[in-house]
């Protein structure tokens, strides 16, 4: 095999992995809430401007523990995808998440975040209402929150728009998900000024969650059945549920000051790990 076909092969594998993560049959946030949680009451609106349906959340029972579950919802068909804006939040979505986190903190409820977004929404209104400011405040809120936080990446975690729900004490990810600094299309537009070179960007970016696991940003990969979570979504949700409960059991047994100190120390070193060779 010569060098150029080797490169082409690597790019094909990389972009196939991205496509697998984007399979519409993978479990979505509302499906996880429906199957893994009970007694959910959705709470809507950011109390400032509007209600962003790309982010859903509210208190629910996970096993025997009340938690605040907050997640990005991509939608499952043409209509719901439009309603949920393909899981791309506006500033209102992040501000809603912050509000729900503060409510959880007040009542001592752990927070569970379900990350499922290609990126934060890029648009005129989002910029006018301070997309960067909303994400920046979410990062501060999650660093300061005096209750345990567990996040899980379901399909795609892209850009600061994902990190704004993933700065947690424990970060889980379904094993075929991707977690990246930017979607390969955006990355190609930035690096090569050509979104069409997404395969080249994907091969270089190594977007799979295994990279985030190596670097230390993800703590546990949830195994998926072959050929992927879309084949047996409910099975995957059950595995995720077990892992969420296990991590919350561990975190809730600790003093909250210890949890906070560990969180601060962890993110002070964030990104110092090195990915295994490709």
């Amino acid at each position: 095999m010569n060098v150029s076909t080797d490169t082409a092969e690597r790019e094909r594998i990389a972009i196939e992995a991205v496509e697998l993560a984007r399979n519409p049959g993978r479990p979505r946030t509302l499906q996880v809430i429906a199957e893994a949680f009970t007694e959910w009451t959705e709470l809507r609106g950011d109390r400032l401007f509007g209600d962003d349906r790309a982010v859903v959340g509210g208190p629910a029972l996970l096993g025997s523990r009340w938690v605040m579950v907050i997640g990005q919802e991509k939608g499952t068909d043409a209509l719901s995808r439009a309603v949920h804006n393909f899981g791309m939040p506006h500033p209102e979505g992040y501000r809603k998440a912050q509000r729900l986190m503060r409510t959880a903190e007040k009542f001592g409820m752990p927070v569970v975040c379900l990350v499922d977004t290609p990126a934060a929404h890029a648009g005129i209104g989002a910029e006018e209402r301070g997309q960067a400011w909303a994400i920046a405040q979410s990062l501060i809120t999650m660093l300061e929150l005096r209750v345990p936080v567990v996040s899980a990446v379901l399909s795609e975690g892209g850009s600061g728009g994902a990190l704004a729900l993933a700065l947690a004490d424990r970060v889980l990810a379904l094993e075929n998900a991707v977690y990246t600094v930017a979607p390969p299309e955006t990355c190609a537009a930035i690096l090569y000024r050509d979104a069409g070179q997404r395969a080249r960007a994907a091969a270089a970016l190594r977007p799979g969650v295994a990279t985030a696991y190596d670097i230390g940003l993800v703590d546990e990969l949830i195994p998926e059945p072959m050929p992927g979570a879309h084949a047996h979504a409910s099975l995957c949700v059950a595995a995720l549920r077990g892992a969420l409960i296990r991590h919350l059991d561990e975190l809730c047994a600790k003093d909250i000051d210890v949890v906070l100190e560990e969180r601060t120390r962890r993110y002070r070193r964030a990104g110092d790990g090195v990915a295994a060779p490709a």
Binding site: I140, L143, L205, Y267, R269
Partner: peptide, 22 residues
């Protein structure tokens, strides 16, 4: 973010935020 460091550069948003909190 610096694209060439991929997910590690995304993590810097968290690291810098931790600095600001301190």
């Amino acid at each position: 973010a610096r694209m060439q460091e991929g997910i590690a550069s995304l993590a810097q948003m968290a690291r810098c935020s931790a600095g600001v909190v301190a």
